[in-house]
Design a binder for these strands. Structure first.
Lengths: 138, 138
DNA sequence: CAAGAGCTGAGAACGAGTTGCAACTGGAAG
DNA sequence: CTTCCAGTTGCAACTCGTTCTCAGCTCTTG
């Protein structure tokens, strides 16, 4: 599945001087294969199931490392444990279905533009933002 | 200062069948007086300084109760402990200065409208949303 | 003013995430 | 290929914000 992608990520890490260990490679694979938004425990479970011996502590350490490398992104929704997603995609915001827990992605250029405008008016520039819509089917 | 406001809130609670105890009254006062966004420990500190004997556990319990009554709102910014604000104000979003930690408020009708539009397009209605701009002075 | 539903304080428990430390590797240098 | 060691790992202990347990209060209502 996401082997190509994982290989690419490994390469990027090596070039950044980050050691690609058995555990890190396993996690890269799991993350590249995920099309949802798993939390640390879930990622750990998947890696272990895939036959990789990894401890949860290492999963956390690795996630921190990968984030510092800009390879993955951390999502912190209200109350729940943090979730993660590969970062090599277009920017997008999230919509959370309160009933099913499903997380959907969306973007809207107009909103992006308005945000920048508002910040600029107050003398700031946006470093990063977070927009989450908690919704219910109708 | 915020005595009028606190009295109004007390009244609302009583009417909702919630007992207004010494501790709760003290917290209502502290919250009505706050013009910033304090976390539980900070609120506890202020209440104690104001001469009220309150335990931290009760602060948490009371915050939960007040929130259920719609009297206050919980803000969960990235990583930090939750912060609280009185809810009897117009809706607004937040802008966080990454350098000073200052939290500013803003609203933009256009953004609100776009959000509703986007949700509607996907067959959802917004129950609640969260928009935070993490910014830096320029 | 008796009674019990509702509150409270103190501390133990919890859950996600982090850290200290001794035992291990990647992978660069020889 | 080996050697070597800074970078990693596993485990257990720890942190920190928050919640829970439970015995003892305290409001209200009858």
């Amino acid at each position: 599945m996401g082997e190509r992608r994982a290989d690419r990520l490994e390469q990027a890490l090596r070039e950044a001087g980050v050691r690609v260990t058995r555990q890190r490679a396993a996690l890269l694979r799991v993350i590249a294969d995920a099309d949802d938004h798993p939390d640390a425990a879930e990622l750990h479970g998947r890696a272990v199931t895939a036959g990789a011996g990894v401890s949860l502590a290492t999963v956390y350490r690795t996630l921190t490392t990968l984030r510092a490398q800009g390879v993955i992104e951390k999502l912190e929704f209200q109350g729940e444990p943090a979730r993660w997603e590969a970062a090599d995609q277009r920017h997008h915001d999230h919509m959370i279905d309160l009933d099913s827990g499903a997380v959907m992605e969306f973007t809207d250029e107009r909103i992006e533009r308005l945000q920048a405008e508002i910040a600029a008016e107050m003398g700031y520039e946006i470093v990063h933002h977070r927009l989450e819509l908690y919704v219910r089917r109708r």
